[in-house]
């Protein structure tokens, strides 16, 4: 990792805090006092295996959802918002779906966006990335189908962050919702944003590690009290053939002379070479630190990507699901 890469990674957290502070407070204030349940009301499942389904491109590259369908019966599933409709399309209904991102126009698409055209105008965030190839091919038609699919599954439990934007709050209002607040700093310190949000909302706070996939893992550990947690679709890296322009960090890094050096190669000990970028590296670092702090491990069944390290075992989904990880 070169100095420029390390410097960018170290700046991401502060940028996020500076930018999100007002949004986090405003959204939490607006979403508070709705009288709905919180994640406190969810009972531990203890000995069940919990699988977190993230939305990385390995989901379709490795046919993970078809494979998941074959072992679904034995598992408790927590899908992140970006993987939810993909699961439904594959005939897999998760037990929980999680959403936390405060972005005002992007996130609602994961539930089928009634204002899709307006919310997509001038935004290439999803078009560039390799998250859902079918959606890219025919976005408007796909969006209409997603609206119908989500409407058909209103009984799925939604884990929703107090910081969610108003369009997500409205769009999911028919679902069985359990609210939580984000743990974004140390609540014991003066001026803590976490404490302020908790005071406004009355909600318990969950550490997100910067991304919804990590928040889902924290939910499985802290609320479900799961002893055996695995993930799929958590690539946190790009296959070697992914063009740089289709990475999450491209808009941040393009135009720099040292751009190629900001996408270092990663040699996964089990699944071979891929490359990463500052944003994905930051997510990975955060997750590894939280696993260490929590003193627990997860199993990564993604089948590719950059996630490995202390407290992360890697194996195939079927092997883990059948109990021989």
């Amino acid at each position: 990792m070169n100095d420029a890469f390390a410097r960018i990674v170290s700046e991401i957290s502060k940028l996020g805090m500076d930018w999100h502070r007002k949004t986090l407070l405003d959204n939490s204030l607006r979403n508070s006092g709705n009288g709905e349940q919180s994640i406190r009301n969810i009972h531990p499942i203890n000995d069940a295996k919990v699988l977190v389904v993230s939305a990385g491109p390995s989901l379709y590259r490795h046919g993970m959802l078809a494979r998941l369908k074959a072992v679904r019966a034995t598992l408790c599933l927590v899908a992140i918002d970006g993987a939810y409709v993909q699961c439904l399309r594959a005939g897999v209904v998760p037990d929980f779906v999680m959403t936390l991102d405060p972005h005002p126009t992007r996130i609602v698409r994961w539930f089928g966006d009634p204002d899709f055209e307006a919310n997509s105008a001038g935004d290439d965030y999803f078009v560039r990335q390799d998250l859902d190839e079918h959606f890219r091919a025919d976005a408007a038609k796909r969006n209409a189908e997603n609206i119908a699919l989500v409407n058909m599954h209103r009984l799925v439990s939604l884990l929703i962050c107090s910081t969610s934007p108003v369009n997500v709050a409205v769009r999911t209002s028919g679902m069985q919702r359990y609210w939580f607040a984000p743990l974004v700093d140390n609540p014991a310190l003066p001026g803590s944003l976490t404490r302020r949000i908790a005071w406004i909302t009355g909600l318990p706070s969950l550490n997100t590690g910067g991304t919804v996939g990590t928040a889902a893992i924290m939910f499985a550990h802290c609320i479900l009290k799961a002893q055996d947690i695995a993930v799929i679709g958590m690539d946190l890296g790009y296959t070697a053939d992914t063009p740089l322009e289709r990475t999450q960090s491209w808009n941040m890094l393009k135009g720099r002379k040292d751009v190629v050096g900001l996408y270092p190669k990663v040699q996964h000990p089990q699944w071979g070479e891929c490359y990463t970028d500052p944003t994905y590296h930051w997510y990975k670092q955060n997750l590894l630190v939280l696993l260490k702090s929590g003193g627990f491990s997860i199993t990564n069944c993604t089948g590719g990507g950059a996630l490995y390290g202390p407290h992360v075992e890697c194996c195939e989904l079927e092997k883990w699901a059948r109990g021989s990880a």
């Binding site: 406190r40 991102d101 965030y125 700093d185 404490r195 318990p204 706070s205």
Partner: peptide
């Protein structure tokens, strides 16, 4: 300019500062 571009790139992210506490309940 970098800051603006970075915010576009990480707009899918929440802030993350505390690395010790996984869950906290004011109650």
């Amino acid at each position: 300019a970098f800051r603006k571009r970075a915010l576009e790139s990480i707009s899918g992210s929440m802030v993350f500062v505390d690395d010790k506490l996984l869950y906290w309940d004011l109650q």
